[in-house]
Each structure stands twice: as structure tokens, then as C-alpha cells.
Write a protein that binds this DNA or RNA. Structure first.
Lengths: 156, 156
DNA sequence: TATTGTTATACTCTATAACTATA
DNA sequence: TATAGTTATAGAGTATAACAATA
């Protein structure tokens, strides 16, 4: 029997929230939230893309992306334009404001991560990264990973 | 220069969200959210307590606790009663429903954590726990932990 | 028929500001 | 003056269901 972590959910939540709060404190003047920065980062990296691709990348429902884009369009981070080939779709483009602020946001994120990881060695950082990836992967399809004796609802 | 984790915020958020989704999927019939279960767990462990203590334990504002308790009172998880000694305060008590469901919720949490950590050794689990605690602690008072050359705003 | 995105609606978590009642 | 908790109000993330336009 492997050792358990009593309150893994609380630990993950607290660490995640601490990073979010710190980032949002440091970017308060721009009012960029962590999920917004994540979305912006994708369209800066991937280039203009439509909302269903963003929903896949962010792993949220299309309507959630739509609402985020509403807010981000309103605060001037990005704009919707008609898709040239598919008249149902719209492509999402960063504004000049977004391009201007992006390097600062990137630096702020790096700074927050550096602060967060103070005192952790390279190998501890690597172990953390692996563990977080493993958790998300394990729970993505929990039936495949879990003890089958407990899987009464896999045939739902 | 230590190795960075490119997207620590996203990794933490994804892992935290995966745990939350899995827990809430498994407790859907009761409609107990992760933050609600966490609050309930505190009052079951600590005994009846007032809202300001809960706000400290959960590290949220008193008004946030007040709102959570509104919802949880409405769905029958707990009740407010007048504090015997301090007429300003109220003590929060779990209902019979909460006491009945608690063992199942506890088992569900343990199961989710077990699923999440499949494939991780004891030492990897321990490293994860330490790292998550360190992140929350480092960011709790970031000025004390961070590289002072970057701390332009510590005198805010 | 399937896909893209939307409206309508709603819930949860979280917060700031202003306030009441009480200590 | 300080504390416990509230009302008022709001932003943000997330979701289900129903729908329009288009492929």
C-alpha cells in the first residue's frame, strides 16, 4: 500500500491559488488574469486561431472560451475577425496592446515561478513537473489508471 | 541559474482542476463541491467554530465564507447558531446529513487522490507534497524569498 | 448530419466597500 | 476603537440547453 497524501486537493488548490494571486497582484495595473494570460499566450504562440481550437487547448467548453473572449475583447486584448474560408468561424487576433504588454507579462510569469520555486533544486523542480503532469494524465481517463475493483461506474 | 518550469501556473491549475472535476463527478449525486467539502471537513475535525476562524483556515475573506455558508446552509450541509458568549458571532454546525455523507466524501477524496497518484512512488509523492507546501509558503511572503534585485515594490 | 459559435440562464468562488451590532 | 458578520454589488470561470448559421 502506497503512502497517501492526506489533502492533495487542498495542497494543489493552495499552490495554484498562490501563483494566481501573485501574478494578478503584479499585473494589477493591466488587469490581466492568469486564465486570460494563458489564452493570450496561446494565440501569440500558435498564431490566430478559432475558438474551438482554443477550447481544446484550454480544455474548457466552447462557451467558456466565448465568454472569456467577450471580456478580453472588451478590455482590448484581442479582437474577433471573420474566418476567410469558413463563414461560421471567427479567428481571434491579439491587439497591439496585447503585443506590447506580452513581454512584461512573460517576465512577470517567470518571476512568479522563480519566487514560487525558491529553495527547490533542479531535481526537485523536475520531480514536481513530472508529478503534476502525471496527475492530470491519470485523472484524464481515471478508469484506465485506477484500481479496477473500485470502478463500478466505468460502464456508465 | 536554476532550471525553470515554463508553465508552472498552467500545470498547477490543470492538476488542481483535474482533481476538482473528478471529485465533483463522483459526488455529483450529493452536489458537494471541493471547497465545500474542505469547509465541512474543517468543522467536522475542529468542531463547531465561528466564521472568522473558518476564514483564517481557508485563507479567504470573511465575506467569502459567509457566502459559502449561505449556499451550504441552503443545501442542508450545515446550520448557523448563535454563539453562547458573543452575541455578534455565530457558530457553524454540521447537519445530520453532513455527518451521514462525510465518510463517503472522505472515501471519495481518498479514491481520487489514489487515482491521481497512480504510478508515483512514495518518494515521488513525498517530493510532490514538499514542493506544493514550499510554493504556497514562498509566495505567502514573496519579498522575503525572492531575489532582492527584483524587489522594487517591497516598500509599497 | 456535423460543426462553429452564440444567447439565455445559472451556479460557484471570490472580492471590495459600506454597514450593523456588539465587544 | 476593534471585531464578527452582513448587505450590496460585482467580476471571473464554468457549465447545460437550445439555437442559428454554415459546412
Amino acid at each position: 500500500m502506497e503512502q497517501q497524501i492526506e489533502n492533495l486537493g487542498a495542497l494543489l488548490n493552495d499552490a495554484s491559488r498562490a501563483v494566481r494571486r501573485r501574478f494578478e497582484h503584479l499585473t494589477a495595473e493591466h488587469g490581466l488574469s492568469v486564465p486570460q494570460w494563458r489564452l493570450l499566450r496561446y494565440i501569440l504562440i500558435e498564431g490566430p486561431c478559432n475558438q474551438s481550437i482554443l477550447a481544446d487547448l484550454l480544455d474548457v467548453e466552447p462557451i467558456s472560451v466565448s465568454r472569456m473572449i467577450d471580456r478580453m475583447e472588451q478590455s482590448g486584448w484581442l479582437k474577433r475577425e471573420p474566418h476567410p474560408d469558413d463563414r461560421r468561424a471567427r479567428i481571434i487576433l491579439p491587439t497591439d496592446k496585447a503585443r506590447t504588454i506580452a513581454p512584461q507579462a512573460r517576465a512577470t510569469a517567470a518571476r512568479v515561478y522563480a519566487e514560487a520555486l525558491v529553495g527547490l533544486s533542479d531535481s526537485q523542480r523536475h520531480a514536481l513537473q513530472s508529478a503534476l503532469l502525471a496527475i492530470a494524465a491519470n485523472l484524464y481517463n481515471p478508469a484506465a489508471a485506477a484500481d479496477p475493483r473500485h470502478e463500478n461506474e466505468t460502464t456508465e
